[in-house]
Design a binder for these strands. Structure first.
Lengths: 124, 124
DNA sequence: GCTTGACTTGGAGCGCACTCCAAGTCGGAC
DNA sequence: GTCCGACTTGGAGTGCGCTCCAAGTCAAGC
């Protein structure tokens, strides 16, 4: 079992050390990160796997407070899987709607781009 | 040519009256909106079309300052089409990368969802 | 003439998600 | 033993994009 410093964990997760501390303080992690005798944080593989899930939720636009709620459910342990599922399904729907919306807008922007391309370097 | 009050324009564009004033103040529109003799804003169809473009750019994540730059280019008039095109193409690329990233994360979240679905209501 | 409601303004305030600061601690190299 | 660099903390600060407030104006209805 490897165990990483906060700088290494930051590099591995693509977050900053600041953000890692912030997530921990804010209850987005499943528990306080282990400490070396010096008091420095030591991140386990399990920590990193969870942080990756948090990153996925954040990267798809889930607000911090919802991630916190999801983390709280997981922390509680077995028995609330239906609730976790509901949370993820609700998020999934939001993300899909957003993807569709953005895709639609992008298509419209593409039309604009095509107009400019014709103006700048007209098709023969 | 219809011309709408700020409340009507808000309804039509899906923005709030607050946001419409804010966009105008911040230079996101092509020019100051016309006024009725009372001083109230009157939005033309052309205004609404431009605001729709702004909305598309914003909804795809373009920062306010970039929208402002694009608006400035359009305001300048003919001759800078290549620059406008470059701005839109750059934005397009950002959006596509983002769409790909979000889609990837969503797929991973879907796996998690599938696990929970099996746990909550196991497949027969 | 008074009320009502939709608007006007400059400027302040807000929520989110970080991001940074100051002051301190620790372990290891020299 | 002292220097360095990586870390620690509580709390303050930042940037973005709105969002709201207070005080005022205007036109229409009664």
């Amino acid at each position: 079992m490897t165990s990483l410093s906060i700088a290494e964990a930051a590099e591995r997760t693509g977050l900053t050390a600041h953000t890692l501390r912030y997530y921990e303080r804010d209850g987005l992690l499943l528990h306080s990160v282990d400490r070396a005798p010096s008091g420095h944080r030591r991140y386990t593989d399990e920590d990193l796997r969870w942080i990756q899930m948090v990153t996925r939720l954040r990267a798809t636009g889930m607000p911090i407070r919802d991630v916190r709620r999801y983390a709280a459910l997981v922390r509680e342990g077995d028995g609330n899987e239906a609730e976790r599922l509901a949370l993820l399904l609700a998020h999934r729907e939001v993300v899909e709607r957003q993807l569709a919306e953005v895709t639609g807008h992008l298509r419209a922007i593409d039309h604009k781009i095509a107009l400019y391309e014709n103006k700048v370097a007209p098709a023969p």
